[in-house]
Amino acid sequence: MSVNLAGRQTWLFNPAPLLLGTGSVAGKREGEGPLASDFDVIHKDPYLGQKSFEMAEQKFIEEACNLAVRWAGVGRDEINLHFSGDLQNQITSSSFTARSLSIPYFGLFGACSTSVESMQLAALAAAGGGAKLALASSGSHTNAVEKQFRYPNEYGSQKNETTQITVTGAGAAVIAAPDFLPAPPAGQIRITSATVGRIVDLNVTDPFNMGAAMAPAACDTLLTHFKERGVRPDYYDLILTGDLGRVGSNLLVDLLTNAGVFIPEKQLNDAGKMIFSAEPKNLAGGSGCGCMAVTACGHIRREIARGRLQKVLLVATGALLSPLTTQQQESIPGIAHAISWEVF
């Protein structure tokens, strides 16, 4: 057992579970963005040769899982647990992926925070003795999400500058128990801590401004993490939020400033801002389960391998709304989960 509870919401892992391998599969728009060279696979065809966008999303997640298992250098049948989530109704893309992988499976829904949520639970299982190897995956598909949450894809509605574009892509990570490798290689990424977020809802009702809905949750989780883990923000080389986009990221900086916390610009970034270029056609940036998943499992993992980063805090944010609650004029509850990747 190597899990210690710090405060109310934070798990400290010591010895820490290992991030053995990751897989990242991205779509066309992501493949034209600034992080393109750091993805394992880029698919230009939004259908991936399937009959529907939903089936394509499932293929994205499946491919990311298989890549992560291959990078980890383990067999699929050695993996004890699989945590996965997506944005489809009844998270079918994840469950159908689990059908083909046949690894014991938990389905999760944390909206766009699922990427870190699945890694947190996989790390908890690996550190707590519940699994020798655990697989965490999540993904999203822009066309499938537009269809479910907004309008038909080809419908001509003018989107405003606060709207975020759902990322097409999936990421997966294989997380191993701390003692899985007798002698971990130098540069082995370890999962050292996780902070489970609370729902924060400051009465934002605009579904085309999800960055604003999620920023208060990101702020709450960050402040809790610093306090409960007992570290200062500059402990981390990079604090990466999930998908606040340009609007939400600015709000997070303001909220942190109001709370008396200052994080230098180069130590705080957002996957939604990084994944697409800053052209006007990309609006406020990226969002979706796949946003943090492909950025962390593709770009961040490689940045750590290049030695540019040693300590990273990933804070995936989720807007827990549905089209129904939006029409019923409910406000949007936000959540943020944090996990730290470190190289000793």
Binding site: Q158, N160, E161, T162, L202, N203, V204, N209, A212, P216, R246, V247, N250, L251, D254, L255, N258, A284
Partner: peptide, 22 residues
């Protein structure tokens, strides 16, 4: 009070609306 304060923050960070151009 927190909600009101946050609304103010959102207004400060609102991207330009381009009403005339549109």
């Amino acid at each position: 009070a927190r909600e009101r304060e946050y609304q103010q923050l959102q207004q400060n960070n609102q991207p330009p609306q381009h009403l005339l151009r549109n």
